[in-house]
Design a protein around this nucleic acid. Sequence first.
DNA 1: ACAAATCGTAATAATTTGATAACATTGGTG
DNA 2: CACCAATGTTATCAAATTATTACGATTTGT
Lengths: 226, 226
Amino acid sequence: MSKPTILIVDDEQDILDLISYNLESEGFEVLKAENGQDGIKLVKQHKPNLVLLDIMMPKMDGLEVCEKLRKEQSVQNIPIIFLTARGDEQTEVDGLDRGADDFITKPISIKKLVSRIKAVLRRFDEAKTEVTSFEVHDIKIDRERYIVYRGDEKFRLPKKEFELLYYLISLKGIVLSREKLLNKIWGDDIHVVDRTVDVHIRKIREKLGDHYIETIKGVGYRFKSE
Amino acid sequence: MSKPTILIVDDEQDILDLISYNLESEGFEVLKAENGQDGIKLVKQHKPNLVLLDIMMPKMDGLEVCEKLRKEQSVQNIPIIFLTARGDEQTEVDGLDRGADDFITKPISIKKLVSRIKAVLRRFDEAKTEVTSFEVHDIKIDRERYIVYRGDEKFRLPKKEFELLYYLISLKGIVLSREKLLNKIWGDDIHVVDRTVDVHIRKIREKLGDHYIETIKGVGYRFKSE
DNA sequence: ACAAATCGTAATAATTTGATAACATTGGTG
DNA sequence: CACCAATGTTATCAAATTATTACGATTTGT
């Protein structure tokens, strides 16, 4: 999983810096905007994984920004956390109505902020990854249990082999280049020699049998679907 | 689900009317009492699904009413929400000590009141339907008694080990990452090193045997289900 | 108040997994 | 059919991950 990107929208430069510094050191990619206009623009441009939105801002307040974003098909599902001053409960209710995913009152401890952010991201992640198991031929792969079945036999593949097989099966029939496989399973930034894929493929074949994964010379591999 | 019944206890007739009007229009069945005495009587008589209790009342205050109710076997488990004046934090602490389930400060928006009420009711509903005991292989874990059985042997695990085992068994077969376990058992904001999980796992294995909990390297742990 | 139990952490050992190089084989094309 | 590039295969070493132990702080039980 690569770095999640978080957009912070707040008119106070100090807060912007404080929060972004801390989030960056927690391994997040951070974008900043000083007003609602820019915020909306950046959201559309970068599709961050989460938006931290100050409510009290001149011109366009956070609630308005939120509402505008919720209307946009393309960014509708990006979670939004509001930053609000303590005790402003009426606003809180409004915010929840307009589609906020969490509320954090300032002043806030960074630790708490980070854990709330992670919680929201997790919730969204889980909602997204619904399908966890596939079945093709006599092979079944179950991501929740991390087990591969061939008929009644069970196989426990190491992580990389499992992920590789899972991805191939989930797109059964489709040829995937080594590069695609590397990007998907190893990640965009990790650099490994593409021969590595071959080795893992071989290990899978060794365990399950040769006839499930087909080599398309000069192109890549595919999980046979017929 | 039929209409939930809510009892409101408050000495101010205005507030009684205001709240009951709004709750009724939200689909609740509403009972009213103007003092603690009547309140207690009505609770015993009607067993409402929830009690809204004003703290500041002549004669018997809300805290006292709460305490009396908590002592009564038959109505012990009815959730109580206190209504209190803003900023009286000491009282709030007292109230939580005496068994309050939530706190709402006056003046309050009706919308918020309703959403808090629904939240508390939901929480109680979930708690009621919660399964408290699981059995897998020769292991049985009983949450109400806080005891683990292996065959006829009894084990008393310390809290963390128990919770960990309980969670693993309740999702038997499914791999849970350290992060998930930490969030579930330690809580979202408590920060402990993830190696801590390993140590607790080891202690469980030491007591029950190595072959119940399986390590999935790079992923997490799972309670074997086969 | 003392002893025992619990819990979190750090340090280190043990183990598994993964990446790469080196060499073997294959399959298609001229 | 021979050649060449692409893939298969194996062994090895490094890195990543987990297991285990020990210790101190805190809590709990008596």
